[in-house]
Nucleic acid binder design. Structure first.
Length: 556
RNA sequence: GGCCCGUUGGUCAAGGGGCUAAGACACCGCCCUUUCACGGCGGUAACAGGAGUUCGAAUCUCCUACGGGUCACCA
């Protein structure tokens, strides 16, 4: 077989050579040890939460080493492509602060190694396709349109589950081998008939032999050599992931390929392609998948339709960006939390991220832990920052509340200042959506009486206590003077001045000062629980406090 | 089914031949406390199983079990 002639026949228009490509995309000039990483999503209009893991690792590794982090859009599957998806991806990556140095942006490509969209790189792939044909390493497989339609309609998953899988796989292999060695005449005839061809790489591996390869996360892997012919180009001339991966990551000079472990089974194919193409393979890092628990208590891959699988869900649920980032870091590097406790004021970007600390096994998504991380994140913020965070969330997710907040920002910030800023800040919010119910009673239009006055206390006593509170209240009292008055009121209605006294001798009193405070709290906030009552009343103001207490007395 | 990866408390995990096997979240109890939140102290709870190597194994080897992934002209 004259492979040169075959190559010309198959790719008559391709004149560029691999050498041209090397010149066009030279080695990057970067400092020693600099890593080049990438994030390579498919534009399906959906960014998986799990995608944040490799993306974060890639971003950290590149930027921690003075390297390059780039974005490549892998749109080789036109069937799954969604309009505007690339723009959505860049938007969400920037929302999560995963800034890339090169790649597809709203204003076109940025960087010298583009185009960064695979569908725009078809010419490049064909250069290498032609080379592989010339080298006798790739061959065409012709199909009629009808056969192609059939292929698309086939339900692969159903086949795999069949018990006869082994036989069917063998049959497929035999069919493949039969098509491997078309004669030149056959090829010419197919071409003349206008049939399309897919390009396959001829596998040369022996599955009985194992290749040892070091994965930076998994350690030493032993995988069988590849003996399956790999589809390089589909009938439409568009490359498969495998082919595009080898060419792009070589030409873009990627040093570390970070991806999910679902790619592990095809690693053998990729290594073979790198070898065929004469490229040095990058270092690989296969990250374990994020799991969830199914109804039977088994681990399952967090799949598209699961709650929380869509990264954008977290914005809509009201998680601050750093909460999500920090949660991801806690899972990625087990010593992150410890470091953060020692460096509470530093950003997760200051953390010395280490490949060695990455876990080889998959973990379960844990909402409780996310919430805990998030509570800590928000508790460290200033009232101003919390205000901005809530507003940013409410603007799109709760516009009515947004109007309320921005109607009187200073008032809102005073409320948000309660218990904030000290060494032991309150931790009331895990998500921005928690803020509204927390703040509601400060606003007359949201105020409701959710909890009743305690039924076991004498109504006359409650009334007396509330009336005394109103008549003795002085806005100028400091907290201790204020509380002394509460104690006086307690005493006046036969309640203990101190909670401790009551506990010691419960029979001697009808209640204690805590009960008095709780009457006032119930009257003013409509609830049993609230942040510091003294602060609350100061913010609400004497007039509204008095109104609410009078209304409560009337209800007795 | 073949192949590959994984397996320390409910969850995330430290530990890489010599511990009574860290810590965080969750849970429970106590303390602090005018409620809540915070904080403090304490507690329940784990090396998947079996062989082997060794004076000694969570740690090394093998087998088994279980879980996951994958087996497309998808990525």
């Amino acid at each position: 077989m004259d492979y040169n002639r075959l190559a010309e026949l198959l790719f008559p228009g391709v004149t560029a050579t691999p050498e041209d490509m090397e010149r066009r995309y030279p080695e990057r000039r970067l400092p020693e040890g600099a890593k080049v990483t990438r994030i390579a999503p498919s534009p399906t209009g959906f960014f998986h939460f799990g995608g944040l893991f490799p993306a974060t690792v890639g971003e950290r590794l590149a930027h921690q080493s003075g390297g390059v982090f780039f974005l490549r859009i892998e749109d080789t599957d036109s069937k799954r492509e969604v309009e505007g998806a690339a723009a959505f991806i860049t938007k969400i990556l920037s929302y999560y602060g995963l800034d890339f140095d090169e790649g597809v942006t709203a204003d076109g490509d940025k960087g010298d190694y583009g185009p960064y969209t695979q569908s725009q790189r078809v010419d490049i792939y064909h250069v290498y396709a032609k080379k592989l044909v010339r080298d006798g390493l790739a061959y065409p497989v012709f199909s009629t349109d009808e056969e192609l339609d059939e292929l698309k309609a086939a339900d692969k998953k159903a086949e795999i589950k069949s018990v006869k899988w082994e036989e069917e796989a063998q049959a497929r292999r035999d069919a493949m081998i039969a098509r491997r060695d078309f004669t030149m005449e056959q090829v010419e005839a197919e071409l003349a008939a206008g049939h399309k061809f897919a390009l396959f790489a001829r596998a040369d591996g022996d599955p009985e032999k194992k290749i040892k390869i070091t994965d930076l996360v998994k350690g030493t892997l032993e995988i069988p050599e590849n003996d399956e012919d790999v589809v390089l180009l589909k009938s439409d001339g568009i490359p498969t992931y495998h082919f595009a991966h080898a060419i792009d990551d070589h030409l873009m000079r990627t040093t570390h390929v970070i991806r999910g472990e679902e790619w592990l089974p095809s690693l053998s194919k990729h290594l073979m392609l790198f070898r065929y193409l004469g490229f040095r393979a990058p270092k690989y890092m296969h990250i374990a998948q994020l799991m969830r628990l199914d109804e039977n208590g088994n681990k399952k891959k967090l799949s598209k339709r699961d709650m929380g699988a869509n990264l954008d869900d977290y914005r809509r649920m009201g998680y601050p960006v750093p909460s999500v980032s920090e949660y991801v870091m806690t899972l990625l590097n087990s010593n992150y939390e410890e470091w953060h406790m020692q460096n509470p004021d530093k950003s997760w970007r200051d953390f010395p991220f280490s490949i060695k600390k990455m876990s080889a096994s998959g973990c379960l998504f844990d909402t409780e832990k996310l919430n805990d991380v998030s509570k800590n994140v928000i508790s460290r913020m200033t009232a101003e920052q919390v205000f901005d965070g809530v507003c940013g969330y409410a603007k799109t997710e709760d516009p009515e509340f947004y109007e309320t907040l921005t109607g009187d920002p200073e008032y809102a910030k005073r409320i948000l200042s309660i218990g904030r800023g000290g060494a032991k800040p309150r931790k009331d919010f895990a998500v921005w959506a928690d803020v509204r119910p927390y703040m509601a009673f400060f606003y007359d239009k949201y105020f409701t009486r959710d909890d009743e006055m305690p039924a076991d206390k004498d109504k006359a006593d409650i009334k007396t206590a509330l009336e005394s509170f109103v008549s003795t209240y002085d806005e100028n009292d400091d907290q201790s003077a204020w509380f002394e008055k509460c104690k006086d009121i307690a005493e006046s209605i036969g309640y203990a001045r101190e909670t401790k006294l009551y506990r010691k001798e419960p029979d001697k009193y009808k209640g204690h000062v805590g009960d008095v405070a709780s009457f006032v709290r119930l009257a003013v906030t409509g609830r049993q629980n609230s942040p510091d009552l003294y602060e609350v009343i100061k913010i609400i103001g004497k007039d509204r406090m008095v109104d609410r207490i009078r209304a409560a007395i009337a209800l007795l």
